[in-house]
């Protein structure tokens, strides 16, 4: 059956599609689905979050069932299937970071942003998330900004500075 067309706002930019094609090229021709993690990441980076239409679009692009792409999007923590704030701060609170004060830092952030973990500030600027081990425990405590930028050796002062720069 013919698929309904996505309207333009749900499509991805040519740049993103080119990046997805680079991912697709990494895998055997009959294994396009392997690129779904990369493709969802690229789509999320462009659009801010993975709304269902976007997941379906990516799934169609990779010729896989939409529900299979949705499974991936909901299995891996770094995909956002709910719209987050402009700046998603993911603070690692796992044991090594906790030993270095991540718990206290978390409390500080919650108080400062007036939100709890998993919540977004009213102005839509910040989302605060509790993260699991990021494989950088030597630099604890640390956080990720919008999935891709890591800030390490955090202190309350450094957190203040960071938040200041994120408009």
């Amino acid at each position: 059956m013919a698929k309904p067309d996505l309207n333009d706002s749900q499509r991805l930019s040519a740049e993103s599609l080119a990046l997805i094609d680079v991912e697709v090229a990494k895998y055997p021709v009959d294994q396009k689905q392997s690129a779904v993690m990369g493709a969802l990441r690229i789509a999320q980076t462009e659009c801010g979050w993975l709304k269902p239409e976007l997941i379906e679009y990516v799934a169609d692009y990779l010729e896989m069932p939409a529900i299979a792409a949705y499974e991936v999007a909901t299995f891996y923590n770094m995909y956002d299937t709910q719209r987050p704030g402009r700046h998603k701060i993911t603070l690692c609170t796992n044991l090594p970071c906790m030993l270095m004060g991540a718990g206290e830092l978390g409390e500080y952030l919650k108080k400062k942003l007036e939100i709890g973990f998993g919540e977004t500030t009213e102005d839509g600027r910040f989302t605060l998330k509790e993260g699991e081990c990021m494989g950088a425990c030597g630099d604890a405590p640390m956080c990720l900004h919008n999935n891709h930028v890591m800030h390490t050796h955090l202190t309350t002062e450094k957190v203040d500075e960071l938040l200041e720069t994120l408009k």
Partner: peptide
């Protein structure tokens, strides 16, 4: 032959 149900989440 068609994946209509999935197991989402973790």
């Amino acid at each position: 032959g068609v994946m209509e149900l999935g197991m989402a989440g973790r």
